[in-house]
Design a binder for these strands. Structure first.
Ligand SMILES: [Mn+2]
Ligand SMILES: [Mn+2]
Ligand SMILES: [Zn+2]
Ligand SMILES: [Zn+2]
Lengths: 139, 139
DNA sequence: ATAAATCGTGCAACAGAAGTGCATTATTCA
DNA sequence: TGAATAATGCACTTCTGTTGCACGATTTAT
């Protein structure tokens, strides 16, 4: 995707398109798998961890990315797709973690099914992670 | 529950029932909510963190407790119930995290529904956490 | 155009959770 | 009783996430 295109996308989300932010956006765009702060740190070894941290935080606040807790202990981030409404209310798609290649992907079209809770419990949010073998890791 | 009872329960799981282990077991037993290592550390302020850490690890290895990743960033532990087979294959009950009282409980009778994955993906494990308001926190 | 205000970046330092090495103490077993 | 084994406690480390503060860049007002 062209830099100009990313610039306008960021602007539409009220994120000022700095050089670093465009690079981070592009990195997330080019990778199907969700990325952690450490992933960014390793890839952009020139840039400071704090900058990347705050970049991703800004992205999250402005609804450009969403956080993923895949159970590995390190938070991952993925670009929000068009129509992703994780800011307003949690977008209830599930995530898949591959035990082989250690990558996490959004399964945006698979929604978390409604669960019937015991009396007195009310659901406000949910997180479902399926772990197994991904399509890129054949047996 | 009597100490002698806990002793024999631990022995049945091939865990030597030391004083500390019995205390930890009893603590988990008396609390409905799952507990973190820090919770144990705060409660047993006489004992060392490492001891508690290894106690809970031993419990986990021997199938006395199971780990819970509730999305808070700190791992919690809860006693395995009779018939819990989280060692052999993952016991697919779900967990509930209360946004108000910050407590996590097992919903052992609610199983994670089967999810139809895209072609090429195979599921081996799953984690579902519902977040909201628990029965002890009325509106 | 210039100055003031705001925003982004980088360095350092810190906090919390988890984990390891090693010495000491307690328990089991020959 | 003594040797072997297991449990405990202390110190230290790693990893992730987070904040304070100073400096440089960019925007906005005059
Ligand atoms: Mn996602
Ligand atoms: Mn449970
Ligand atoms: Zn894979
Ligand atoms: Zn509650």
């Amino acid at each position: 995707m062209k830099t100009a295109k990313i610039e306008s996308l960021l602007q539409k989300s009220n994120v000022r398109p700095t050089a670093m932010r465009i690079l981070v956006y592009n990195f997330l765009l080019e990778n199907e798998a969700a990325k952690s702060l450490t992933d960014l740190e390793n890839y952009f070894d020139k840039s400071d961890r704090t900058t990347l941290y705050r970049t991703i935080k800004t992205f999250e606040d402005k609804g450009v990315v969403h956080q993923i807790d895949d159970g590995t202990g390190t938070t991952k981030y993925a670009l929000c797709e068009q129509g992703c409404n994780c800011q307003i209310e949690t977008d209830l798609h599930l995530h898949f973690y591959c035990n082989i290649c250690d990558e996490t992907v959004c399964l945006t079209d698979r929604k978390i099914p409604n669960i019937n809770l015991p009396d007195g419990y009310t659901a406000e949010d949910a997180n479902l992670v399926i772990k197994g073998r991904c399509e890129k890791c054949p047996e």
